[in-house]
Design a binder for these strands. Structure first.
Lengths: 189, 189
DNA sequence: TACTAAACCGACTAATCAATCTATAAATAT
DNA sequence: ATATTTATAGATTGATTAGTCGGTTTAGTA
């Protein structure tokens, strides 16, 4: 991604919080501009339309998340350890970037995100996941459609992050590892 | 719930589809009225405000879902069989009532649903789940916080329903049972 | 210093929104 | 039969919206 102007980032960050809180149509461009400390004219200088804003915001958020799991794969580690590292990185990202995580969650199947944006994100996502995927040693994992396992991993991450959001006092590595076991013991034979 | 006038139901059904497709603020009351085949005046006769409409729609949807799992508990069956019946009933509801399921998913933590509505739904929900909960025999289940198990069950249902939505050709009882095993083997020791 | 282009501003506009209002028609009660 | 309430419609209203426009400031460059 190209480096971003300061005001552009301010607008992205302001709209991130507002979109999560009130949704796409529930947030007016003037509110975003005010919250970002810029004029509406400036907003439309950086983003041609409100739709372009949310699409760029989606790309930006996904990019942030993917960067977190980019360097976690180590071929010398066991398959379980690698999956655990991936799962944990995603959960940690969700906890430390609550708004971004919720945004990705809420908007990944939203009609405002164009299919072009989705495709761009998916291609990137698949390339990064590839390393983990290749390690999918069939003998240790149940004979279940590959993409069901992937969806199930993401579902488990989402459940865990939301659980920690709801019960912050229970947020500790022990329960986190316990939650991973719920996933791992489910998929392993 | 009280019996509903015909037009009231038409409005609820029309708004269900539109809210899922375009969100709360993305759907205008005039669109809802048109799609329901009534005038806007009629809509506001049955629902004082747009917010009341979405709250009543939420109650109505949850009620439909809870009715599906109301009579499935049988104390003479094993704990696993009961949990399986619950899980399967929820997945089947999600498949057969796609819009309602997505609506519940999207709006259960939405700011438009008042805390009063949420409380009303939760109380009802907890009373129905109680039977299943009581059967939670600790010796068969991992020693994990009770509400994490509940969240994890719901997460597993959501993942499974969405998977079937995405891959309709893979929607069969075999894969459904396989998905249940992913959940069950995760929580059982 | 003088020129240019990009960044930035906020008043403005046409469209759209939730909700109201007035007017009938239908149903129910007396 | 008559009075009263309820159901329905659609035109209307004041507020709000996404996006524009003309002008000003800032930053880079010759």
């Amino acid at each position: 991604m190209e480096p971003m102007k300061e005001k552009e980032l301010q607008i992205l960050n302001a709209s991130l919080d507002l979109f999560v809180e009130r949704g796409f149509h529930g947030t007016s461009t003037s509110e975003i501009a005010k919250s970002a400390g810029v004029a509406t004219g400036t907003l439309f200088h950086y983003f041609k339309t409100k739709e372009e804003l949310i699409n760029r915001l989606y790309l930006y958020s996904k990019e942030c998340m993917l960067q977190e799991i980019n360097d976690d794969y180590h071929s010398e580690n066991s398959f379980k350890d690698n999956i655990n590292a991936l799962w944990t990185a995603l959960v940690d990202f969700g906890i430390n970037n609550s708004a971004m995580f919720q945004f990705i969650l809420s908007f990944h199947c939203s009609p405002y995100i164009t299919s072009l944006t989705k495709k761009e994100v998916e291609t990137r996502s698949e390339r990064i996941m590839e390393a983990y995927i290749l390690g999918l040693e069939k003998q240790k994992i149940k004979d279940v459609p590959y993409d069901l396992i992937v969806d199930y991993l993401w579902g488990s991450v989402v459940t865990t992050v939301n659980y920690f959001e709801k019960h912050p006092q229970k947020m500790n590595p022990q329960i986190r590892d316990l939650a991973f076991d719920l996933f791992w013991d489910g998929i392993s034979r």
